[in-house]
Write a protein that binds this DNA or RNA. Structure first.
Lengths: 149, 149
DNA sequence: CAGTTGTCTTGATCAGTTCAAGATACCCGC
DNA sequence: GCGGGTATCTTGAACTGATCAAGACAACTG
């Protein structure tokens, strides 16, 4: 994996450029890192990027992730108790399943009964723009293994 | 407001004691502070407590909130981009409406269509224990007032 | 190929939260 | 009512995750 062939890289570059951003080695590396681990912390992306671009700084990664987030290229989620996570799946209104044991995160395409969660029973006059659903539970590994502090 | 009469205080004390915790002035003050502002940060609770008990330390407030949270007396929520908020409404599986403009938080009793959100379409083998829904939008005030950075 | 502008590096700073050790106060039993 | 045991509070420090600022550098435009 970690496809570094020209084709894949070009695809990434097109995405970046069409978002109105300049294409740099660091930015390509960040996108590839997020392909490899779809729910990564900034720190983790940093480690992955640095593997291929040793001179890269943590602040650069934060800058890239911030730019991508406001450009809509990546989505930032912040499960309670965890550092911010970044993912490339964007614009498809999916939700997350978080393991309370190990912190593992999985995507959930949607909720049964379609998307009723987009409408609260009483919006209190709010203009509701988005609904975010987080499911908390134990992943298969943590169900098997008793407590791993 | 800020009822300090014996009756109300006694009710709070009973709640604390029945959770297996000792009753102290700081703990009573924290509960009352959460009654006055139902979605408060630790810092905000600290300010409210200190108004009545000048010698109280911030760490004491953190300690009380942590103890209450693990005893199930208060619930801790962490909307993305905000500090942790604490609330007394607990055990009724309600959700939250957060203003992206000013950060105001309101409770939402439940979602239309009952509680379908408790069942993801594909649990991936997880033992799902809870579902947390956060609605993002603009509150009436922020809809009226254009951008207040 | 040079200019302009956006991006990266370096270094410092911040908010929010947690940890540790000792003094203190609550609650139980007598 | 009062002392002992233990949870709680105070003081002080430290830690993580994230952000800001200034200058060096590199990507795209013409």
């Amino acid at each position: 994996m970690t496809s570094t062939d020209a084709t894949a890289t070009d695809t990434l570059a097109v995405g970046i450029r069409s978002a109105g951003l300049k294409v740099t080695a660091q930015r390509l590396a960040v996108l590839q890192a997020l392909d490899d681990s779809p729910h990564a912390t900034a720190e983790r992306v940093f480690a992955a990027v640095r593997a291929g671009l040793p001179g890269t700084s943590l602040q650069a990664v934060y800058g890239v992730l911030t730019a991508f987030t406001s450009a809509g290229l990546v989505r930032r989620i912040e499960p309670a108790g965890s550092a911010a996570l970044f993912e490339r799946r964007v614009g498809d209104n999916h939700h997350h399943l978080v393991c309370t044991g190990c912190g593992a995160v999985h995507d959930v395409d949607c909720v049964v009964g379609e998307a009723p969660c987009l409408t609260p029973s009483d919006a209190r006059g709010f203009a509701v723009a988005a609904a975010e659903v987080t499911f908390w539970g134990l992943c298969p590994s943590c169900r098997a293994a008793p407590a791993t502090p």
